[in-house]
Design a protein around this nucleic acid. Sequence first.
RNA 1: GGCCCUGUCGUCUAGUCUGGUCUAGGACACAAGCUUUUCAAGCUUGGUACACGGGUUCGAAUCCCGUCGGGGCCGCCA
Length: 474
Amino acid sequence: MSEAQAQKKEIRTRFAPSPTGPLHVGGARSALFNFVYSKQHKGKFILRIEDTDLERSDPVFEKDIKDGLSWLGINWDEFYRQSERLDAYEKYLKTLLERGLIFWCSHSEAELAAEKQNQILNRESPRHVCPHRDGSAGSLENGEGILRFKNDAEGDVFFEDLIRGRIAFDGRILGDFSVAKSLRTPLYNFAVVIDDREMAISHVIRGEDHISNTPKQILLQEALGFERPQYAHLPLILGSDRSKLSKRQGAFSVLEYQKLGYLSEAMINFMILLGWHTAEEKEIFTTTEILEEFSLDRVQKGGAVFDTDKLGWLNREYIKKLKDDDLAQKLENFAGDFAEKIKADSKKWLKISALARERITTLNEIGELAEIFYKEPYYPKELLFWKENTASENIVRHLKHTGEFLSNIEKWTKNDLEYKLMPYADESGRGEVLWPLRVALSGKRFSPGPFEMAEILGKEESFKRVTKAVKMLE
RNA sequence: GGCCCUGUCGUCUAGUCUGGUCUAGGACACAAGCUUUUCAAGCUUGGUACACGGGUUCGAAUCCCGUCGGGGCCGCCA
């Protein structure tokens, strides 16, 4: 094999979003599949911003897309922006014009709309077969209206989809589809074909919503004499109503998941499972394992509903696997208000995050837990009553007793506290003793256990909180 | 309306190519029980699915035909 041939064999995939909205899970998953496929074949992954529509494109979204991909660890090897490649499109447009394969169509949008309406009424496939298709052929001067492809396809246009097998369209129902608004404003189907060729894309892996664009792109490739890439159309990610994920159904930026405290590893794991599974029952995959085990032929055909329950579960699983200091550090980013206090005593924070590990689904839930340890608790005194009919004197008695115990304990650890206090609690009724203690320490209806909280709070602070509770009742 | 894709538990799916081991497996979610000072977690148990109708076959989730359902696209957006 010559070097040129070897190079040609390189697997090159791309993610080609238009910067007209944030990177949502649908897009991120497309990017992930492309990334994984290229990387497992030692190929290249390309990020191409499709910003030919100047009206709708916004640099803000380009940034969101890049930041989102970076957060997920989906790194690109090459980067392009279509708005910077106008010369290339113009060159090919001129060639096509000279060869009479595209032409200027000056029908107004109103005329086109009327035509379409009519075709639907007549149960025909809406398309525009332009009467101008021969008249102005070859004219570079014309420049009126838009450029359309002179579609003379007669039979089926078909391709082998790597996921779905053979897909065929009747080429005639495509009509003379549009390719550019002017020589320097190419339209999607045209720009894609030029770019995929010039960037030597070997595999086009994209959403199922592009299936119907594929025959147009193939026709263009054939007109230009381009080699055809391999196609793989992914099932769509669906909202809870089973329609294509849209902004209304929570298709917000993946960066929002970061803000909520989801781990990028969990996100990757979740997205790869949306449409792909191994034959085994394994569900947790590291990126390395994904790279080893992924294959396009095990990609699902039907759309998958985006359900965050499972994301939450995965996130918990990944949180459990984090190293202590790693978790503590990650959690610190979500405990904004207490940043100073956390820095002042990192050992304490390590204990708090260890406590959080088993109790949180997303990192941002740390706030409520951290509050217990860094803020003086305020709560209605009724909360101290385990059961409504518990006598106030009993609670006071138990709390006082507990307070004495606390002040006499030398070794301040959870185990010691438990060991010393439990006999009394068992004797007097666990709920009667432990519930008020727990509330006194946390100020909350729900919280971790009293002994683990006391250990972190320290002797002095624990005693202070118990005393405060007693005062409230007296 | 036209064209295209698709159809296994509520959700993600294994199984479909190469019919029998599938009275359909797993995970999430849900429910109950255990544990328990609360909430979680954990453990145990449970319910729920082959869209429907024909056909082929000794035998069909798996093969064939039809029906129905869901989705996508039909732009001088991508």
